[in-house]
Design a protein around this nucleic acid. Structure first.
Lengths: 249, 249
DNA sequence: CGTTCTATTGACTCGATTCAAACTAAGTGG
DNA sequence: CCACTTAGTTTGAATCGAGTCAATAGAACG
Protein backbone atom coordinates (compact mmCIF):
# COMPACT_ATOMS: atom_id res chain seq x y z
CA UNK A 1 0.00 0.00 0.00
CA UNK A 2 1.36 3.34 -1.06
CA UNK A 3 0.34 6.17 1.20
CA UNK A 4 3.24 8.61 1.57
CA UNK A 5 2.55 11.94 3.16
CA UNK A 6 -1.22 12.21 3.11
CA UNK A 7 -1.41 15.60 1.42
CA UNK A 8 0.58 14.39 -1.60
CA UNK A 9 -2.48 12.57 -2.94
CA UNK A 10 -4.51 15.70 -2.55
CA UNK A 11 -1.97 17.95 -4.23
CA UNK A 12 -1.54 15.54 -7.11
CA UNK A 13 -5.30 15.50 -7.59
CA UNK A 14 -5.71 19.27 -7.45
CA UNK A 15 -2.77 19.76 -9.82
CA UNK A 16 -4.79 18.01 -12.48
CA UNK A 17 -7.47 20.69 -12.20
CA UNK A 18 -5.59 23.94 -11.75
CA UNK A 19 -2.11 25.33 -11.09
CA UNK A 20 -1.83 26.10 -7.41
CA UNK A 21 0.22 28.94 -5.98
CA UNK A 22 3.08 28.15 -3.62
CA UNK A 23 1.10 29.64 -0.76
CA UNK A 24 -1.86 27.36 -1.47
CA UNK A 25 0.42 24.32 -1.63
CA UNK A 26 1.92 25.27 1.71
CA UNK A 27 -1.54 25.73 3.17
CA UNK A 28 -2.55 22.24 2.11
CA UNK A 29 0.69 20.69 3.33
CA UNK A 30 0.13 22.24 6.75
CA UNK A 31 -3.46 21.19 7.22
CA UNK A 32 -3.81 18.63 10.02
CA UNK A 33 -4.70 15.15 8.77
CA UNK A 34 -5.26 12.00 10.77
CA UNK A 35 -4.51 8.83 8.83
CA UNK A 36 -6.59 5.77 9.58
CA UNK A 37 -7.08 2.26 8.19
CA UNK A 38 -10.39 0.63 7.50
CA UNK A 39 -11.25 -2.98 6.82
CA UNK A 40 -13.52 -4.23 4.04
CA UNK A 41 -17.14 -3.38 4.68
CA UNK A 42 -16.45 -1.01 7.56
CA UNK A 43 -18.56 2.15 7.62
CA UNK A 44 -16.66 5.44 7.85
CA UNK A 45 -19.72 7.63 8.34
CA UNK A 46 -23.39 6.71 8.40
CA UNK A 47 -26.67 8.07 7.16
CA UNK A 48 -27.90 10.57 9.76
CA UNK A 49 -24.50 11.34 11.30
CA UNK A 50 -23.39 14.93 11.77
CA UNK A 51 -19.92 15.23 10.33
CA UNK A 52 -17.14 17.46 11.64
CA UNK A 53 -14.35 16.32 9.31
CA UNK A 54 -13.77 15.34 5.70
CA UNK A 55 -12.44 12.05 4.37
CA UNK A 56 -9.59 12.00 1.86
CA UNK A 57 -9.03 8.60 0.24
CA UNK A 58 -5.32 7.74 0.28
CA UNK A 59 -5.39 4.11 -0.78
CA UNK A 60 -8.08 1.59 -1.68
CA UNK A 61 -11.71 2.29 -2.48
CA UNK A 62 -14.77 3.64 -0.71
CA UNK A 63 -18.35 3.68 -1.87
CA UNK A 64 -21.46 5.64 -0.96
CA UNK A 65 -24.80 3.92 -0.62
CA UNK A 66 -28.25 4.10 0.90
CA UNK A 67 -31.11 1.73 1.52
CA UNK A 68 -34.38 2.09 -0.37
CA UNK A 69 -37.61 0.57 0.91
CA UNK A 70 -35.73 -0.40 4.03
CA UNK A 71 -33.75 -3.25 2.51
CA UNK A 72 -32.60 -2.66 -1.05
CA UNK A 73 -29.13 -1.16 -1.22
CA UNK A 74 -28.27 1.31 -3.95
CA UNK A 75 -24.61 2.13 -4.41
CA UNK A 76 -24.43 5.71 -5.70
CA UNK A 77 -20.69 6.13 -6.23
CA UNK A 78 -17.29 4.52 -5.99
CA UNK A 79 -14.32 6.53 -4.74
CA UNK A 80 -10.68 6.25 -5.71
CA UNK A 81 -7.53 7.69 -4.09
CA UNK A 82 -7.51 11.48 -4.19
CA UNK A 83 -11.31 11.68 -3.81
CA UNK A 84 -13.04 13.42 -0.90
CA UNK A 85 -16.34 11.54 -0.94
CA UNK A 86 -17.93 13.62 1.81
CA UNK A 87 -16.76 17.06 0.72
CA UNK A 88 -20.39 18.15 0.88
CA UNK A 89 -20.36 17.84 4.69
CA UNK A 90 -18.34 21.07 4.79
CA UNK A 91 -21.60 22.92 4.14
CA UNK A 92 -24.14 20.13 4.64
CA UNK A 93 -22.86 18.32 7.74
CA UNK A 94 -25.84 15.99 8.13
CA UNK A 95 -25.23 12.81 6.16
CA UNK A 96 -28.02 11.50 3.93
CA UNK A 97 -26.19 8.28 3.04
CA UNK A 98 -23.43 5.98 4.29
CA UNK A 99 -19.75 5.80 3.26
CA UNK A 100 -18.14 2.35 3.45
CA UNK A 101 -14.76 0.82 2.69
CA UNK A 102 -14.59 -1.43 -0.38
CA UNK A 103 -11.71 -3.69 0.58
CA UNK A 104 -9.00 -2.45 2.92
CA UNK A 105 -8.65 1.31 2.66
CA UNK A 106 -6.41 4.05 4.03
CA UNK A 107 -7.93 7.48 4.50
CA UNK A 108 -7.01 10.82 6.04
CA UNK A 109 -9.45 12.80 8.14
CA UNK A 110 -9.38 16.59 7.77
CA UNK A 111 -11.22 18.65 10.42
CA UNK A 112 -13.83 20.98 8.96
CA UNK A 113 -12.49 23.85 11.06
CA UNK A 114 -9.00 23.82 9.53
CA UNK A 115 -10.38 23.04 6.10
CA UNK A 116 -12.68 26.06 6.29
CA UNK A 117 -9.88 28.31 7.52
CA UNK A 118 -7.79 27.28 4.55
CA UNK A 119 -10.61 28.01 2.10
CA UNK A 120 -11.44 31.29 3.80
CA UNK A 121 -7.90 32.43 3.08
CA UNK A 122 -7.82 31.42 -0.59
CA UNK A 123 -10.42 32.15 -3.29
CA UNK A 124 -8.37 29.90 -5.55
CA UNK A 125 -8.76 26.89 -3.25
CA UNK A 126 -12.43 27.70 -2.73
CA UNK A 127 -12.82 27.53 -6.49
CA UNK A 128 -10.98 24.21 -6.76
CA UNK A 129 -12.88 22.43 -3.99
CA UNK A 130 -16.24 23.88 -4.95
CA UNK A 131 -15.49 22.65 -8.46
CA UNK A 132 -14.66 19.19 -7.10
CA UNK A 133 -18.04 19.04 -5.39
CA UNK A 134 -19.69 20.04 -8.67
CA UNK A 135 -17.95 17.28 -10.60
CA UNK A 136 -19.27 14.92 -7.94
CA UNK A 137 -22.77 16.18 -8.79
CA UNK A 138 -22.12 15.81 -12.52
CA UNK A 139 -21.26 12.15 -11.93
CA UNK A 140 -24.56 11.62 -10.13
CA UNK A 141 -26.39 13.17 -13.06
CA UNK A 142 -24.69 10.70 -15.37
CA UNK A 143 -25.70 7.85 -13.07
CA UNK A 144 -29.30 9.06 -13.28
CA UNK A 145 -29.02 8.68 -17.04
CA UNK A 146 -27.29 5.34 -16.65
CA UNK A 147 -30.04 3.88 -14.50
CA UNK A 148 -32.88 5.59 -16.30
CA UNK A 149 -32.03 4.93 -19.92
CA UNK A 150 -29.54 2.11 -20.41
CA UNK A 151 -30.12 -1.63 -20.29
CA UNK A 152 -28.26 -3.86 -17.86
CA UNK A 153 -25.18 -4.52 -19.97
CA UNK A 154 -24.89 -0.86 -20.93
CA UNK A 155 -25.04 0.17 -17.28
CA UNK A 156 -22.26 -2.15 -16.23
CA UNK A 157 -20.14 -1.17 -19.24
CA UNK A 158 -20.64 2.47 -18.36
CA UNK A 159 -19.61 1.97 -14.74
CA UNK A 160 -16.42 0.20 -15.85
CA UNK A 161 -15.60 2.96 -18.33
CA UNK A 162 -16.04 5.62 -15.66
CA UNK A 163 -13.83 3.77 -13.20
CA UNK A 164 -11.06 3.29 -15.75
CA UNK A 165 -11.08 6.99 -16.61
CA UNK A 166 -11.06 8.15 -13.01
CA UNK A 167 -8.35 5.70 -12.02
CA UNK A 168 -6.29 6.67 -15.02
CA UNK A 169 -6.56 10.33 -14.02
CA UNK A 170 -4.74 9.55 -10.77
CA UNK A 171 -2.32 7.10 -12.40
CA UNK A 172 -3.91 3.93 -11.09
CA UNK A 173 -5.10 2.17 -14.24
CA UNK A 174 -2.03 1.29 -16.27
CA UNK A 175 -2.70 -0.42 -19.59
CA UNK A 176 -6.45 -0.08 -19.14
CA UNK A 177 -6.51 -2.54 -16.29
CA UNK A 178 -7.16 -2.27 -12.57
CA UNK A 179 -8.08 -4.32 -9.53
CA UNK A 180 -11.07 -3.54 -7.36
CA UNK A 181 -12.13 -5.74 -4.43
CA UNK A 182 -15.84 -5.81 -5.18
CA UNK A 183 -18.24 -8.69 -5.60
CA UNK A 184 -20.79 -9.17 -8.35
CA UNK A 185 -23.40 -8.24 -5.81
CA UNK A 186 -21.74 -4.81 -5.38
CA UNK A 187 -21.81 -4.35 -9.14
CA UNK A 188 -25.48 -5.31 -9.14
CA UNK A 189 -26.34 -2.76 -6.44
CA UNK A 190 -24.54 -0.01 -8.35
CA UNK A 191 -26.23 -0.90 -11.64
CA UNK A 192 -29.66 -1.36 -10.10
CA UNK A 193 -29.97 -4.96 -11.27
CA UNK A 194 -30.15 -8.33 -9.52
CA UNK A 195 -27.01 -10.27 -8.62
CA UNK A 196 -27.98 -13.11 -10.91
CA UNK A 197 -28.39 -10.76 -13.83
CA UNK A 198 -25.13 -8.97 -13.01
CA UNK A 199 -23.42 -12.33 -13.35
CA UNK A 200 -25.02 -12.93 -16.75
CA UNK A 201 -24.08 -9.46 -17.95
CA UNK A 202 -20.46 -9.90 -16.86
CA UNK A 203 -20.29 -13.19 -18.73
CA UNK A 204 -21.67 -11.49 -21.80
CA UNK A 205 -19.01 -8.75 -21.55
CA UNK A 206 -16.36 -11.48 -21.45
CA UNK A 207 -17.93 -13.36 -24.33
CA UNK A 208 -17.91 -10.21 -26.46
CA UNK A 209 -14.19 -9.94 -25.63
CA UNK A 210 -14.63 -6.39 -24.41
CA UNK A 211 -12.76 -7.16 -21.22
CA UNK A 212 -11.34 -9.81 -18.93
CA UNK A 213 -12.90 -9.94 -15.51
CA UNK A 214 -11.13 -12.44 -13.27
CA UNK A 215 -12.57 -12.02 -9.84
CA UNK A 216 -11.07 -8.67 -8.78
CA UNK A 217 -8.88 -7.92 -11.79
CA UNK A 218 -10.44 -6.13 -14.73
CA UNK A 219 -8.59 -5.65 -18.00
CA UNK A 220 -10.16 -3.77 -20.88
CA UNK A 221 -9.59 -5.56 -24.17
CA UNK A 222 -11.65 -3.35 -26.47
CA UNK A 223 -12.14 0.17 -25.16
CA UNK A 224 -14.08 1.46 -28.15
CA UNK A 225 -16.46 -1.46 -28.04
CA UNK A 226 -17.01 -1.10 -24.31
CA UNK A 227 -17.49 2.67 -24.48
CA UNK A 228 -19.92 2.31 -27.34
CA UNK A 229 -21.92 -0.41 -25.57
CA UNK A 230 -22.01 1.75 -22.43
CA UNK A 231 -22.81 4.92 -24.40
CA UNK A 232 -19.84 6.43 -22.61
CA UNK A 233 -18.35 9.86 -23.17
CA UNK A 234 -15.97 11.24 -20.56
CA UNK A 235 -17.21 14.84 -20.86
CA UNK A 236 -19.20 14.74 -17.65
CA UNK A 237 -16.06 13.91 -15.63
CA UNK A 238 -14.63 17.35 -16.51
CA UNK A 239 -11.15 15.87 -16.24
CA UNK A 240 -9.07 18.23 -18.31
CA UNK A 241 -7.14 21.13 -16.80
CA UNK A 242 -9.76 23.75 -16.05
CA UNK A 243 -10.60 27.22 -17.06
CA UNK A 244 -8.87 30.16 -15.30
CA UNK A 245 -9.68 29.95 -11.64
CA UNK A 246 -9.38 33.57 -10.68
CA UNK A 247 -12.58 34.62 -9.02
CA UNK A 248 -12.22 38.36 -9.38
CA UNK A 249 -9.28 40.75 -9.61
CA UNK B 1 -47.57 35.52 -13.59
CA UNK B 2 -46.01 36.90 -10.47
CA UNK B 3 -42.49 38.11 -10.96
CA UNK B 4 -41.88 41.26 -8.90
CA UNK B 5 -38.35 42.51 -8.51
CA UNK B 6 -36.26 39.56 -9.61
CA UNK B 7 -34.06 39.39 -6.50
CA UNK B 8 -37.07 38.97 -4.19
CA UNK B 9 -37.42 35.34 -5.24
CA UNK B 10 -33.78 34.79 -4.50
CA UNK B 11 -33.86 36.47 -1.12
CA UNK B 12 -36.94 34.58 -0.11
CA UNK B 13 -35.26 31.32 -1.05
CA UNK B 14 -32.01 32.09 0.77
CA UNK B 15 -33.90 33.24 3.86
CA UNK B 16 -35.19 29.71 4.24
CA UNK B 17 -31.62 28.47 4.56
CA UNK B 18 -29.84 31.09 6.64
CA UNK B 19 -30.29 34.58 8.10
CA UNK B 20 -28.55 37.03 5.81
CA UNK B 21 -26.87 40.19 7.00
CA UNK B 22 -28.12 43.55 5.74
CA UNK B 23 -24.98 43.96 3.70
CA UNK B 24 -25.51 40.60 1.98
CA UNK B 25 -29.12 41.51 1.22
CA UNK B 26 -27.99 44.79 -0.29
CA UNK B 27 -25.37 42.97 -2.32
CA UNK B 28 -27.99 40.64 -3.78
CA UNK B 29 -30.43 43.46 -4.46
CA UNK B 30 -27.76 45.31 -6.39
CA UNK B 31 -26.61 42.45 -8.57
CA UNK B 32 -27.51 43.06 -12.23
CA UNK B 33 -30.22 40.74 -13.49
CA UNK B 34 -31.75 40.53 -16.94
CA UNK B 35 -35.30 39.21 -16.93
CA UNK B 36 -36.40 37.14 -19.90
CA UNK B 37 -39.41 35.07 -20.94
CA UNK B 38 -39.27 31.62 -22.46
CA UNK B 39 -41.92 29.60 -24.20
CA UNK B 40 -42.71 25.96 -23.54
CA UNK B 41 -39.97 23.69 -24.81
CA UNK B 42 -37.48 26.46 -25.47
CA UNK B 43 -33.87 25.66 -24.51
CA UNK B 44 -32.16 28.17 -22.21
CA UNK B 45 -28.71 26.62 -22.44
CA UNK B 46 -27.55 23.51 -24.26
CA UNK B 47 -25.24 20.56 -23.69
CA UNK B 48 -21.75 21.71 -24.72
CA UNK B 49 -22.34 25.45 -24.31
CA UNK B 50 -19.89 27.55 -22.31
CA UNK B 51 -21.90 29.57 -19.85
CA UNK B 52 -21.11 33.09 -18.67
CA UNK B 53 -24.21 33.70 -16.57
CA UNK B 54 -26.53 31.91 -14.17
CA UNK B 55 -30.26 31.36 -14.50
CA UNK B 56 -32.61 32.20 -11.64
CA UNK B 57 -36.14 30.85 -12.07
CA UNK B 58 -38.68 33.56 -11.30
CA UNK B 59 -41.88 31.97 -12.51
CA UNK B 60 -42.81 28.68 -14.13
CA UNK B 61 -40.70 25.55 -14.39
CA UNK B 62 -37.46 24.47 -16.05
CA UNK B 63 -36.01 20.99 -16.39
CA UNK B 64 -32.58 19.59 -17.07
CA UNK B 65 -32.13 16.66 -19.41
CA UNK B 66 -29.72 14.82 -21.66
CA UNK B 67 -29.92 12.26 -24.43
CA UNK B 68 -28.64 8.72 -23.91
CA UNK B 69 -27.77 6.47 -26.83
CA UNK B 70 -28.43 9.41 -29.11
CA UNK B 71 -32.19 9.39 -28.84
CA UNK B 72 -33.52 8.50 -25.39
CA UNK B 73 -34.15 11.55 -23.25
CA UNK B 74 -33.58 11.38 -19.51
CA UNK B 75 -34.95 14.24 -17.45
CA UNK B 76 -32.66 14.63 -14.45
CA UNK B 77 -34.38 17.40 -12.52
CA UNK B 78 -37.31 19.81 -12.43
CA UNK B 79 -36.80 23.37 -11.23
CA UNK B 80 -39.19 25.65 -9.41
CA UNK B 81 -39.10 29.41 -8.76
CA UNK B 82 -36.13 30.39 -6.60
CA UNK B 83 -33.92 27.64 -8.08
CA UNK B 84 -30.68 28.35 -9.94
CA UNK B 85 -30.50 25.21 -12.07
CA UNK B 86 -27.10 26.04 -13.57
CA UNK B 87 -25.36 27.29 -10.45
CA UNK B 88 -22.59 24.79 -11.22
CA UNK B 89 -21.55 26.82 -14.29
CA UNK B 90 -19.99 29.33 -11.89
CA UNK B 91 -17.09 26.90 -11.51
CA UNK B 92 -17.85 24.41 -14.28
CA UNK B 93 -18.86 26.65 -17.19
CA UNK B 94 -19.05 23.88 -19.79
CA UNK B 95 -22.55 22.43 -19.85
CA UNK B 96 -22.95 18.64 -19.83
CA UNK B 97 -26.71 18.74 -20.29
CA UNK B 98 -29.51 20.99 -21.55
CA UNK B 99 -31.88 23.28 -19.61
CA UNK B 100 -35.35 23.74 -21.09
CA UNK B 101 -38.54 25.59 -20.17
CA UNK B 102 -41.46 23.43 -19.03
CA UNK B 103 -44.37 25.62 -19.99
CA UNK B 104 -43.96 29.38 -20.17
CA UNK B 105 -41.25 30.52 -17.79
CA UNK B 106 -39.76 33.79 -16.56
CA UNK B 107 -36.13 33.77 -15.57
CA UNK B 108 -33.41 36.24 -14.58
CA UNK B 109 -29.89 36.00 -15.93
CA UNK B 110 -27.06 36.86 -13.54
CA UNK B 111 -23.61 37.43 -15.07
CA UNK B 112 -20.91 35.17 -13.58
CA UNK B 113 -18.62 38.16 -13.14
CA UNK B 114 -20.93 40.07 -10.80
CA UNK B 115 -22.03 36.88 -9.08
CA UNK B 116 -18.42 35.96 -8.34
CA UNK B 117 -17.63 39.47 -7.08
CA UNK B 118 -20.51 39.23 -4.67
CA UNK B 119 -19.36 35.83 -3.38
CA UNK B 120 -15.76 36.98 -3.15
CA UNK B 121 -16.88 39.69 -0.77
CA UNK B 122 -18.99 37.49 1.49
CA UNK B 123 -18.02 34.15 3.07
CA UNK B 124 -21.61 33.91 4.26
CA UNK B 125 -23.01 34.07 0.72
CA UNK B 126 -20.33 31.66 -0.49
CA UNK B 127 -21.56 29.24 2.13
CA UNK B 128 -25.19 29.65 1.17
CA UNK B 129 -24.69 29.20 -2.58
CA UNK B 130 -22.18 26.39 -2.22
CA UNK B 131 -24.74 24.73 0.04
CA UNK B 132 -27.43 25.21 -2.61
CA UNK B 133 -25.25 23.43 -5.15
CA UNK B 134 -24.74 20.58 -2.68
CA UNK B 135 -28.47 20.17 -2.13
CA UNK B 136 -28.75 19.95 -5.91
CA UNK B 137 -26.27 17.05 -5.77
CA UNK B 138 -28.17 15.41 -2.91
CA UNK B 139 -31.29 15.45 -5.06
CA UNK B 140 -29.43 13.68 -7.87
CA UNK B 141 -28.29 11.03 -5.41
CA UNK B 142 -31.89 10.45 -4.44
CA UNK B 143 -32.83 10.15 -8.10
CA UNK B 144 -30.13 7.51 -8.51
CA UNK B 145 -31.87 5.56 -5.75
CA UNK B 146 -35.25 6.26 -7.30
CA UNK B 147 -34.27 4.87 -10.69
CA UNK B 148 -32.10 2.09 -9.34
CA UNK B 149 -34.29 0.58 -6.67
CA UNK B 150 -37.95 1.53 -7.00
CA UNK B 151 -40.57 0.14 -9.35
CA UNK B 152 -42.45 2.34 -11.80
CA UNK B 153 -45.25 3.44 -9.49
CA UNK B 154 -42.82 4.12 -6.64
CA UNK B 155 -40.69 6.28 -8.91
CA UNK B 156 -43.59 8.44 -10.02
CA UNK B 157 -44.91 8.72 -6.46
CA UNK B 158 -41.47 9.80 -5.30
CA UNK B 159 -41.15 12.46 -7.97
CA UNK B 160 -44.54 13.89 -7.00
CA UNK B 161 -43.62 13.92 -3.31
CA UNK B 162 -40.38 15.75 -4.03
CA UNK B 163 -42.13 18.36 -6.15
CA UNK B 164 -44.77 19.01 -3.51
CA UNK B 165 -42.15 19.53 -0.82
CA UNK B 166 -40.00 21.82 -2.94
CA UNK B 167 -42.98 23.86 -4.10
CA UNK B 168 -44.27 24.11 -0.57
CA UNK B 169 -40.90 25.42 0.58
CA UNK B 170 -41.34 28.43 -1.70
CA UNK B 171 -45.03 28.80 -0.97
CA UNK B 172 -46.30 27.41 -4.26
CA UNK B 173 -48.16 24.27 -3.23
CA UNK B 174 -51.11 25.33 -1.12
CA UNK B 175 -53.24 22.49 0.24
CA UNK B 176 -50.94 19.89 -1.20
CA UNK B 177 -51.87 20.76 -4.75
CA UNK B 178 -50.05 22.35 -7.65
CA UNK B 179 -50.16 22.76 -11.39
CA UNK B 180 -47.29 21.80 -13.64
CA UNK B 181 -47.50 21.97 -17.44
CA UNK B 182 -45.92 18.62 -18.21
CA UNK B 183 -47.15 15.73 -20.31
CA UNK B 184 -47.17 12.07 -19.34
CA UNK B 185 -44.24 11.66 -21.67
CA UNK B 186 -42.23 14.12 -19.54
CA UNK B 187 -43.10 12.12 -16.45
CA UNK B 188 -42.01 8.96 -18.26
CA UNK B 189 -38.64 10.45 -19.20
CA UNK B 190 -38.04 11.55 -15.63
CA UNK B 191 -38.99 8.17 -14.18
CA UNK B 192 -37.10 6.18 -16.80
CA UNK B 193 -40.21 4.33 -18.00
CA UNK B 194 -42.18 4.26 -21.25
CA UNK B 195 -44.98 6.71 -21.93
CA UNK B 196 -47.54 3.94 -22.07
CA UNK B 197 -46.45 2.62 -18.70
CA UNK B 198 -46.42 6.13 -17.21
CA UNK B 199 -50.05 6.39 -18.21
CA UNK B 200 -50.89 3.10 -16.49
CA UNK B 201 -49.04 4.10 -13.36
CA UNK B 202 -50.85 7.43 -13.17
CA UNK B 203 -54.18 5.67 -13.51
CA UNK B 204 -53.19 3.35 -10.70
CA UNK B 205 -52.28 6.31 -8.48
CA UNK B 206 -55.74 7.72 -9.14
CA UNK B 207 -57.42 4.38 -8.52
CA UNK B 208 -55.64 4.08 -5.17
CA UNK B 209 -57.03 7.54 -4.36
CA UNK B 210 -53.60 8.82 -3.49
CA UNK B 211 -54.04 11.86 -5.70
CA UNK B 212 -56.08 13.52 -8.39
CA UNK B 213 -54.22 14.16 -11.60
CA UNK B 214 -56.33 16.12 -14.08
CA UNK B 215 -54.09 17.01 -16.94
CA UNK B 216 -51.82 19.67 -15.39
CA UNK B 217 -53.38 19.93 -11.94
CA UNK B 218 -52.19 17.54 -9.26
CA UNK B 219 -53.87 17.33 -5.86
CA UNK B 220 -52.58 15.01 -3.19
CA UNK B 221 -55.42 13.15 -1.49
CA UNK B 222 -53.41 10.86 0.77
CA UNK B 223 -49.93 12.13 1.55
CA UNK B 224 -48.93 9.30 3.87
CA UNK B 225 -50.00 6.69 1.35
CA UNK B 226 -48.17 8.42 -1.47
CA UNK B 227 -44.99 8.96 0.56
CA UNK B 228 -45.03 5.36 1.70
CA UNK B 229 -45.57 4.04 -1.83
CA UNK B 230 -42.74 6.27 -3.07
CA UNK B 231 -40.51 5.41 -0.09
CA UNK B 232 -40.20 9.15 0.39
CA UNK B 233 -38.42 10.92 3.21
CA UNK B 234 -37.64 14.62 2.81
CA UNK B 235 -34.27 14.45 4.60
CA UNK B 236 -32.25 14.61 1.41
CA UNK B 237 -33.80 17.98 0.50
CA UNK B 238 -32.11 19.55 3.55
CA UNK B 239 -34.94 22.06 3.73
CA UNK B 240 -34.82 23.20 7.30
CA UNK B 241 -32.99 26.34 8.41
CA UNK B 242 -29.36 25.41 8.35
CA UNK B 243 -26.52 25.07 10.75
CA UNK B 244 -24.45 28.17 11.62
CA UNK B 245 -22.98 29.54 8.46
CA UNK B 246 -19.93 31.28 9.87
CA UNK B 247 -16.89 29.96 8.10
CA UNK B 248 -14.27 31.11 10.58
CA UNK B 249 -13.95 33.96 13.06
C1' DC C 1 -63.16 22.06 -38.78
C1' DG C 2 -59.35 19.62 -39.75
C1' DT C 3 -54.61 19.11 -37.77
C1' DT C 4 -51.76 17.96 -34.11
C1' DC C 5 -50.78 16.75 -29.50
C1' DT C 6 -51.84 14.00 -25.68
C1' DA C 7 -54.11 10.29 -23.27
C1' DT C 8 -55.86 5.69 -23.23
C1' DT C 9 -56.45 0.70 -24.26
C1' DG C 10 -55.31 -4.07 -25.79
C1' DA C 11 -52.25 -7.72 -27.30
C1' DC C 12 -47.91 -9.43 -27.57
C1' DT C 13 -43.06 -9.66 -26.46
C1' DC C 14 -38.91 -9.33 -23.87
C1' DG C 15 -35.50 -8.03 -20.44
C1' DA C 16 -34.84 -8.87 -15.95
C1' DT C 17 -36.27 -10.97 -11.44
C1' DT C 18 -37.05 -14.73 -8.47
C1' DC C 19 -36.30 -19.09 -6.65
C1' DA C 20 -33.60 -22.93 -6.18
C1' DA C 21 -29.71 -25.62 -6.63
C1' DA C 22 -24.98 -26.64 -7.71
C1' DC C 23 -20.39 -25.41 -7.89
C1' DT C 24 -15.92 -23.10 -6.59
C1' DA C 25 -12.61 -20.93 -3.69
C1' DA C 26 -11.06 -19.64 0.57
C1' DG C 27 -10.68 -20.00 5.06
C1' DT C 28 -10.98 -22.34 9.92
C1' DG C 29 -10.19 -25.55 13.32
C1' DG C 30 -9.07 -30.09 14.78
C1' DC D 1 -3.91 -32.35 5.86
C1' DC D 2 -8.73 -32.98 5.81
C1' DA D 3 -13.71 -32.15 7.15
C1' DC D 4 -16.54 -28.27 7.64
C1' DT D 5 -18.08 -23.70 6.88
C1' DT D 6 -18.89 -19.58 4.46
C1' DA D 7 -18.83 -16.32 0.71
C1' DG D 8 -19.17 -15.76 -3.88
C1' DT D 9 -20.16 -17.38 -8.67
C1' DT D 10 -22.75 -19.94 -12.00
C1' DT D 11 -26.81 -22.35 -14.10
C1' DG D 12 -31.70 -23.43 -15.17
C1' DA D 13 -36.65 -22.77 -15.11
C1' DA D 14 -40.62 -20.20 -14.20
C1' DT D 15 -42.57 -15.75 -13.69
C1' DC D 16 -43.43 -10.88 -13.99
C1' DG D 17 -42.91 -5.95 -14.67
C1' DA D 18 -42.39 -3.07 -18.25
C1' DG D 19 -41.67 -2.18 -23.28
C1' DT D 20 -43.33 -2.21 -28.01
C1' DC D 21 -46.63 -1.88 -31.51
C1' DA D 22 -50.85 -0.42 -33.08
C1' DA D 23 -55.17 1.56 -32.84
C1' DT D 24 -58.56 4.73 -30.83
C1' DA D 25 -60.31 8.55 -28.27
C1' DG D 26 -60.05 13.27 -26.56
C1' DA D 27 -58.35 17.97 -26.18
C1' DA D 28 -56.19 21.88 -27.83
C1' DC D 29 -55.13 24.94 -31.56
C1' DG D 30 -55.18 27.94 -35.43
Amino acid sequence: MEAGRPYTRLLRRLDSVVSLTESDRRGIAQIPMTVKNFANGQDLIRDGDISTQCILVLDGYLFRHKMANGSQRQIMSFHVPGDIPDLQTLHLPKLDHTVTALGAAVVAFIPHTSFKELLQASPQLTHVFWRESLVDAAIFREWVINLGQRDAIGRVAHIICELVMRLQAVGLAQNMSFTIPWTQSDVADAAGISTVHANRVIQELRRLELLEWDSRLIQIRNWDGLASLGDFSADYLHLRKGEPAIVTG
